[in-house]
Design a protein around this nucleic acid. Structure first.
Length: 419
RNA sequence: GGAGAGUUGCCGGAGCGGUUGAACGGGACGGUCUCGAAAACCGUUGUAUCUUUACGGGUACCCAGGGUUCGAAUCCCUGACUCUCCGCCA
C-alpha cells in the first residue's frame, strides 16, 4: 500500500507508476475521496470536541446537584449530528481503503520502463549451455523412461497440473527441497519456518495477492480460506501487526511449502510436463530489513538463489524485469532463468523482489529504529528455488545418451539418506 | 461439536457509566550518588490522524464490529482469538 500522503504530494508520479505497470487504479477519484474524507473527519473531530467539553460540564453539575437540562437538550442534537457524520465518515474511509488497495507499488528508477517481458534486460549469464554428443531429450522423455513421474494418474486424481512424482523421482524432488533448505540454513543464515498452507483474507491482502488476484487462487468457501500461491504469504505475514526492534533486524526466514495456483487465463501456455502446474513445491526466502538496507539485501538474496543453481552446475541467466513485468506489489524484481537443453529454452525458476514498505504497510509490520521512532520496515522475498523447472533443467542437463539420469555429485548424499 | 472462563499500555495487573490515555507493580531509558557498579532516590516511558512555520492544540484507539446514552474500557448484541473440561479424530 502506498502512503496516502505520498499520493497526495506526488499524484503524477503515482499515475505514471500505474500506467507503467499496466494497472488501472483511478488516482484522481482516490484523491477526491480522500479530500471529502478529511473534511468529514474535521467536522467530526470538532463536534466530538464540543461534546466532550459539555459532557464534562454535565458531569460536574450533576455531581454538584445542579440542573443540567439545558446542556442535555443541547447535546441531544449534537449527538444526532455526530452519528450522522460518523456514518458518512466510515463509508468514506472504507471507500478510500478499498481504492488504496488497488494502487500498485512504484517501481524504482533502475527498473526499465516497458509494457511486457520484451523490455526486460539481461543482467548476467552464468556458465554455458552444455553440449551433448547426441540429441538431448526433453525432461518428459527422461522422466517417463526412468519412472520419475506419473502425470496421467495425477490428472486422474485431481486434474491436469497436479503432478505425481514416483519412485526415484519422488526421492529426487524431496532431495532438492532438503538440499535447498539446508543450504540456506547453513550457508546463508536463514531461519526455517513451517507454515499453514491455507490462510485467511487479511493475510492474503497483507502481501498484496488480494484484492487483485482472487481469481488466481484456490478458495475454501466454508471457511473463507485461500490455498497459498507462495510461502511468501504466510511467512511475510508472520510479523503482521507487530513492532519489531531494530536489534531484531535483519530477519531472514526460509520455508518450504507446496504452492497452489489456479493459473486462470493461462491455459494452453507452456503446459508441457512440469512447466506450468497447479501445485508445485518451492523453497522461499523472506527478509525483513531496515529501509536503508533493502537494495543491498535484494542483491544478497539474488546471490542466495543463484548459489543453488551454481551448486547444481546449471547454466542460467539473471534478468532485470521491466515495469510492466514486475508484480503489483514489487518495486524491483530479478528473475532467474535456468537453461533447459532438451527443451531448448530458459525457464524461470526464481523471482527475487524488493517490496519496499508496500507490504509492510498493508500487513502493518513496523520496527523501532535506534532513535526509538516507529517506522515501517522493508520486506523482500525470493524463490530459492521452485522445484518443477529446476527438475526440468536437472533432468535435461544431466541426461545420459541411454536416457538415464545421473544426478550431480552434490545431490548424491541427499539421494542416499540411510536409515 | 457441547459447557464454562477470559482478551486492558513493553510485561504483570486494577478499573463505581462522568477530569481514566487509563491506578499499582515490574521492565526499559535519563538523572542524582559512585573511581566504577549495585542499591536507593528523582524523572521519562503509546499509536494513528487532523491542525500549526514552530511551541502547541483537537480527535480516535482498553480484541473487532454494531447498539444503548448528553457521555462507554465500564451496559447490551454479534464475531474473532486464547484457556479449561467433555466429545470426536490423525
Amino acid at each position: 500500500m502506498i502512503d496516502i500522503k505520498f499520493i497526495r504530494n506526488n499524484p503524477e508520479l503515482v499515475k505514471e507508476a500505474v500506467r507503467n505497470k499496466n494497472e488501472k487504479a483511478d488516482i484522481d477519484k482516490l484523491l477526491a475521496i480522500d479530500e471529502s474524507r478529511r473534511k468529514l473527519q474535521f467536522d467530526f473531530d470538532n463536534l466530538k470536541s464540543q461534546q466532550n467539553t459539555v459532557s464534562q460540564t454535565i458531569a460536574r453539575k450533576k455531581k454538584a446537584g445542579e440542573n443540567a437540562d439545558a446542556e442535555l437538550s443541547e447535546m441531544a442534537s449534537v449527538a444526532e449530528e455526530i452519528k450522522k457524520i460518523n456514518a458518512e465518515l466510515s463509508v468514506a474511509n472504507s471507500e478510500l481503503e478499498a481504492m488504496l488497495l488497488t494502487v500498485p507499488n512504484i517501481p524504482q528508477p533502475e527498473v526499465p520502463v516497458g509494457r511486457d517481458e520484451s523490455c526486460n534486460t539481461l543482467v548476467r549469464i552464468w556458465g554455458e549451455q552444455p553440449t551433448f554428443g547426441f540429441e538431448p531429450k526433453d525432461h518428459l522423455e527422461i522422466a517417463n523412461q526412468n519412472g520419475f513421474l506419473d502425470l496421467a494418474r495425477g490428472a486422474k486424481i485431481s486434474g491436469s497440473g497436479f503432478p505425481i512424482y514416483t519412485g526415484q523421482g519422488a526421492r529426487l524432488e524431496r532431495a532438492l527441497i532438503s538440499f535447498m533448505l539446508e543450504y540456506h540454513l547453513q550457508k546463508h543464515g536463514y531461519e526455517e519456518l513451517m507454515v499453514p498452507l491455507a490462510v485467511n483474507r487479511k493475510t492474503m491482502t497483507g502481501t498484496g495477492q488480494l484484492p487483485k488476484l482472487e481469481e488466481d487462487m484456490y478458495h475454501i468457501n466454508e471457511d473463507d480460506l485461500f490455498l497459498i500461491p507462495t510461502a511468501e504469504v504466510p511467512v511475510t505475514n508472520f510479523y503482521a501487526d507487530e513492532v519489531l526492534s531494530h536489534k531484531d533486524l535483519p530477519k531472514c526466514l526460509v520455508a518450504y511449502t507446496p504452492c497452489f495456483r489456479r493459473e486462470a487465463g493461462s491455459y494452453g501456455k507452456d503446459t508441457k510436463g512440469l512447466q506450468r502446474l497447479h501445485q508445485f513445491n518451492k523453497v522461499e526466502m523472506v527478509r525483513f530489513v531496515e529501509p536503508e538496507k533493502s537494495p543491498e539485501a535484494l542483491e544478497e538474496m539474488l546471490c542466495n538463489a543463484e548459489a543453488i543453481l551454481q551448486a547444481f552446475g546449471l547454466h542460467y541467466r539473471v534478468i532485470n524485469l521491466c515495469t510492466g513485468d514486475t508484480s503489483f506489489a514489487s518495486q524491483r524484481t530479478y528473475d532467474l532463468e535456468v537453461w533447459a537443453p532438451g527443451s531448448g529454452k530458459y525457464l524461470e525458476v526464481s523471482s527475487v523482489s524488493n517490496f519496499g514498505e508496500f507490504q509492510a504497510r498493508r500487513a502493518n509490520i513496523r520496527y523501532k529504529d535506534s532513535t526509538g521512532k516507529v517506522r515501517h520496515l522493508h520486506t523482500l522475498n525470493g524463490s530459492g528455488l521452485a522445484t518443477p523447472r529446476l527438475m526440468i533443467a536437472l533432468l535435461e542437463t544431466y541426461q545420459q545418451e541411454d536416457g538415464s539420469f545421473k544426478a550431480p555429485e552434490v545431490l548424491k548424499p541427499w539421494l542416499e539418506m540411510r536409515v
